[in-house]
Design a protein around this nucleic acid. Structure first.
Ligand SMILES: [Mn+2]
Ligand SMILES: [Mn+2]
Ligand SMILES: [Zn+2]
Ligand SMILES: [Zn+2]
Lengths: 139, 139
DNA sequence: TTCTACATTATAATAGTTCTAAACTGTTGA
DNA sequence: TCAACAGTTTAGAACTATTATAATGTAGAA
């Protein structure tokens, strides 16, 4: 929920030039109360609903990767033919509804901390992600 | 660690015709003490090392999917351009070394049970998978 | 043995993503 | 102010994992 000049500052401060494409994508991704999950394809649709000047597909890919690298987005690992991204970068886990192909946040308060009692020598833990697959309960 | 006639029984009992391709793939996948993770590409290489009659790529894909559907294999969700499969179908979680692009089993005894204190109405839990991403520890 | 449904195969098609290289633009500093 | 340059955008091509196609082959039933 920032305004454009705040996005400009944010982009600049992380070393990204505030181009009009990036500012527009910031608006689409971050001008909302609720965070959300998206595929590139879905993002392209959201963008085209909000603007007349189209942004090329390559730029959408470039920007999403840049934002992911800067920590503005997370990528969620699931078995899918396409990548899923998350505007919620705080620590949390997911339900994945394989029927609806829909990712749903699990509030971190609803998950007991995951304890891993083993390590890999020479490696440090970067992230711990829980994916809970769900399906229709026909019973 | 079964012999061919046992694979034949296993395939028949799950409604899959025991073709020579499927039996060969069973040998490659299950004739080993240790379970392992693989991509289709890696599996094709393993197969060609163990046999002279080549198996077509389409058959490898078909067979892996059939085995997955029958529960002989699991697919592991990670962010990768290719799918990862696991011959270890017992309940367990994974380290993923993003540098080496290597999946490593976490013994289930080394993970405290994951407690999810929320549900999605009308859906039942199919699986709970933990992915621990690791990277080189330069410190 | 004959029949048929199932399986294999080579190859084409698909689709998400990345690459290329030319045109464009934000920023810097003279 | 504005030239210079590095960073960015873009259309389209290329890439690659996976799936579809449709013809041929085969396991198992009768
Ligand atoms: Mn969705
Ligand atoms: Mn491997
Ligand atoms: Zn999320
Ligand atoms: Zn495993």
């Amino acid at each position: 929920m920032l305004n454009n000049s705040q996005y400009i500052d944010k982009l600049r401060s992380s070393g990204l030039r505030p181009t009009k494409q990036r500012i527009k994508i910031c608006e689409v991704l971050f001008n909302t109360h609720k965070t959300f999950h998206f595929t590139i394809n879905e993002l392209v649709k959201r963008i085209s609903k909000l603007t007349n000047d189209k942004i090329s597909l390559a730029t959408v890919y470039n920007t999403v990767h840049a934002f992911k690298n800067k920590g503005y987005l997370k990528e969620i690992p699931i078995n899918s033919d396409q990548s899923y991204f998350d505007t919620n970068t705080s620590h949390h886990h997911h339900f994945y509804d394989e029927t609806q192909k829909d990712l749903i946040d699990i509030d971190d308060a609803d998950v007991e901390p995951v304890k891993i009692n083993t390590r890999i020598p020479g490696k440090k833990i970067k992230s711990v992600e829980v994916l809970v697959k769900v399906e229709d309960d026909k019973s």
